[in-house]
Amino acid sequence: MPAERFSTATRLKALGEQAAARVQRARPPRRARLTGRAALLALVMCSLVVALAYPTRQYISQRSEIADQRRQAIEAQRRADELRDEKARWQDPEYVRQQARLHLHYVKPGETGYIVRDGSGAGKPRKGQGTAERPWYDNMWDGLDAADK
């Protein structure tokens, strides 16, 4: 009996190998991976990417320009508000007097104006020091002295 079993098992193995060989022969031959349809689809996709690249880049560029223009408009509005406030301050006579005293060294009638120098000679013109770097009253006095000579 064991000899028959062995022969049946051997027979079954042989039948399985034959069936596998028939299946292998029955399969259609392997086709190339890239079919004509797949190539056409790849070409269409590449065309779409190329066609949409430029408009997308333009859109992004224009969005950044719009953001820059908005920032500039906000800055211009802020500057206009500052100038409007400054104009309103200059309409006040007290502010004008304060600025004249501060920048032009004006004094009120009855007051004595002093200019304190630290001894460094900053008020005296030096070689290479232009008239724009000196106080206005030094330039005026130098002009009067020059006219007097």
Rank of each mutant, 00 (worst) to 15 (best):
W90Q: 08
L41K: 14
R84D: 11
A67W: 01
S61M: 04
Q24S: 12
K124T: 13
R79I: 04
V96F: 00
I115M: 07
R97G: 02
A26E: 10
L34V: 10
P125D: 05
T131I: 06
E75G: 12
L104T: 02
A3V: 06
P125L: 07
Q24V: 03
M140H: 09
D68L: 13
D118K: 00
L52Q: 14
R37K: 14
P2F: 00
A67N: 13
L144A: 08
L15V: 01
H103K: 07
P29N: 12
R70K: 13
K108Q: 15
R27V: 01
R25W: 00
A67R: 14
E111V: 01
D142E: 15
E65P: 05
V50Y: 07
I60S: 11
R63N: 12
A53Y: 05
A38Y: 04
P2S: 14
K87M: 01
A147E: 10
N139C: 06
R117W: 02
Q69E: 15
E75I: 03
G143P: 02
N139M: 07
I60L: 14
E4P: 06
G130A: 12
A132F: 04
W90C: 06
D92E: 11
Y59M: 10
L48C: 07
Q69I: 03
P55N: 11
A26D: 12
L12F: 00
A42Y: 00
S7N: 15
V107K: 14
L34C: 03
W90T: 04
A73Y: 04
G143Q: 12
G130S: 15
R33P: 07
R31K: 13
Q72R: 14
H105F: 07
K13A: 09
Q91G: 09
R27N: 08
W141C: 12
Y106E: 15
D148S: 07
Y114V: 13
G110E: 05
V49I: 13
Q18D: 14
P28D: 02
E133F: 00
A42V: 04
G110H: 01
V49Q: 14
E94G: 10
V44N: 14
R25Q: 11
S47T: 09
S47F: 03
Y137I: 11
G119Q: 01
T8D: 12
R126C: 07
R27P: 00
S7V: 06
H105C: 11
R57K: 10
K108V: 00
I115D: 00
G119D: 09
